[in-house]
């Protein structure tokens, strides 16, 4: 015997200190924010409250992007191209969508963040990353 069902559950997540700052910068300045750890001399994207390397909590925000380099990608039929992109000025990659076909892509391909016209402080305020061409 099989029993099936479904209910809807509402969630409301707080972006927190670093997350809120990141989303406000997207919305108000069309700007990507990372966090710089002076101890590790490393900038992580997106902004966060503590360093994933040393655990340090002195993490001033820094502007990164909008230019970015492609790290890796996958083409999901019907859903688009998802990619790990490393914004210029950051030492790690973040996950987002590519605006354009996957043909001709290679690690290092140059990208640029495209911002939505109507922004609401959400990760989708970045519409995606457009493909500029092959990297050096």
């Amino acid at each position: 015997m099989i029993r099936e069902g479904s209910i809807n559950i509402p969630f409301l997540y707080a972006a927190g200190k670093a997350g809120s700052e990141f989303l406000v910068a997207l919305r108000d300045r069309q700007q990507l924010l990372g966090s710089h750890c002076p101890a590790c001399a490393r900038t992580v994207a997106p902004a966060r409250a503590f360093c994933p390397g040393c655990g340090g909590e002195e993490m001033p925000s820094v502007d990164i992007g909008p230019g970015a380099a492609l790290v890796s990608w996958t083409d999901v039929p019907g859903r688009g191209v998802f990619a790990l992109v490393r914004p210029d000025g950051a030492d790690n990659a973040m996950l987002h969508k590519l605006l354009g076909p996957a043909e001709g892509l290679r690690p290092g391909s140059r990208l640029r963040a495209v911002f939505a016209d109507e922004r609401q402080g959400h990760i989708t305020d970045i519409e995606g990353f457009e493909i500029l061409g092959e990297g050096s």
Binding site: N8, F11, L12, Y13, S20
Partner: peptide, 8 residues
């Protein structure tokens, strides 16, 4: 900032 999500 908070993000609202309704999940089935």
């Amino acid at each position: 900032i908070s993000v609202a999500i309704e999940m089935a």
